[in-house]
Amino acid sequence: MIVAERKPFEEVRAMVKDFKKVLTVGCGTCVAVCLAGGEKEVGVLNSELKIARRMEGSPIQTGGVTVERQCDMEFLEELDGIVDEYDAIISMACGAGIQFIAERFPDIPVFPGVDTSFIGVNREVGWYEEKCRACGTCVLGMTAGICPVTMCAKGLFNGPCGGTNKGSCEINSDQPCAWHRIHERLAKQNRLQNILDICPPNDWRNQTPRTIVQPGYKDRLAAFGIK
């Protein structure tokens, strides 16, 4: 899941300070699951804005809608008739959703309500851990299911480096050494040969905006002339 954090209130307040009618749009998928941008958080942010603006003597009107997913155009349709009534939009989705809203409503300023943080897992209610950097070249098969791009400070594909220190990373004793853990797990699985094999480097030139068309859908796009 994509994990996000609510932006500090001060930042949100500053972004919308010149607007009188603001629509806050929640997203019912990842950011709702990680308790940052679902229906509940939309209501709370709107209340915060109202309290702050009343205090400033510049009241604000707010609206709240939470759509299923802001990263699907069809789900943004329900906003079509609504956004015209507002001067600005705060999107509480991840960066992808925010941009999709901004693209659909190019005449209205769209502001982020959250900071998109990482792709991660849910350890407990409200507790998330980063697991994946979406590098585009997954090596988890080599590394016993532990991501060195995320976990290793150097993002090494062939570790450990000389900075591994009794299970910790040289940058911080609280930071586990990814390659120490990889070694431990590979050893348990009798796959230590993986450490000796050279893992070819990632093509970091892939860090331009990427597009994926799943194999079964290339024909579909061509048939309908979708570009």
């Binding site: 509940k40 209501g43 209340s47 915060e48």
Partner: peptide, 8 residues
């Protein structure tokens, strides 16, 4: 939400 709504 109720708490913040009341104050708002």
């Amino acid at each position: 939400d109720y708490v913040m709504h009341a104050l708002a």
